[in-house]
Amino acid sequence: MSKDKKESVIESSIKRKYKLQAKDVKVWYGDFMAIKGISMDIKPNKVTAFIGPSGCGKSTFLRLFNRMNDYVDGFKMGGEINIDGSNINAKDINVELLRKQVGMVFQKPNPFPKSIFENVAYGLKIQGLKDKAFLEERVESSLKQVALWDEVKNDLNKSALALSGGQQQRLCIARTLAVEPSIILMDEPTSALDPISTAKIEELIYKLKDKYTIVIVTHNMQQASRISDNTAFFYLGELIEYDKTNKIFTNPEKEQTENYITGRFG
């Protein structure tokens, strides 16, 4: 086997092993250093939870994976973020295409002030897809994936703002699924929802990991322990500990992690 070939084999095996890779990532907002050199690898088809007290940089870090910090004034970044082995901050990367691959669900449900159908079809329409039968089919399958189809199938033309909070959040997830991303980033997706809606979303996340790599920021430690395979604990812009969820919650290596998960601070 030639050397080049060998390297590419190794590379593709890394690709399979790690969906997302951060290498010594630093982030500044103006003079403030929000992330102080974080390296981590995230495995495909797993749920990875980011936990930590407010202001620890976990949301900022999450938003690096779909470059949502690009529009923030004073944002500067060092280090490298790779998805499937390629640097997403490289000059030739089209950020719109990146975001079709890396979907995002936000803290507060944020459906567009349009109909349910238009919400789910939006990502496809802006890609220039117009075929009505295709759009209808994709809207239906996306809504079925989030278990919303039966609740809204007769009201597809009604405003999405008329749905309940939990339904809106599932609609937002359906909207993300419609463009078939491979990664879904979730920034505290249940913090604005009631317990029943939260349970539905958690169940959904558990099902979705067969097809998607999911990274979720959460304030709720029970949630992290319920739904995630791996957990990363952030504190003051640093990654303190990153391991199997089970390990983090039963036998953490670091004292800070233990203090946080047992509720001694944070």
Partner: peptide, 27 residues
């Protein structure tokens, strides 16, 4: 127009102009 609408549109892979045209101007 709430910032969350812009966030949602950008996160779906919309360009600035698409966000302006499809979301901000109608809203």
């Amino acid at each position: 127009v709430p910032k969350s609408i812009r966030d949602a549109s950008f996160a779906m892979g919309a360009s600035k102009w698409q966000t302006v045209y499809h979301q901000l101007l109608p809203a």
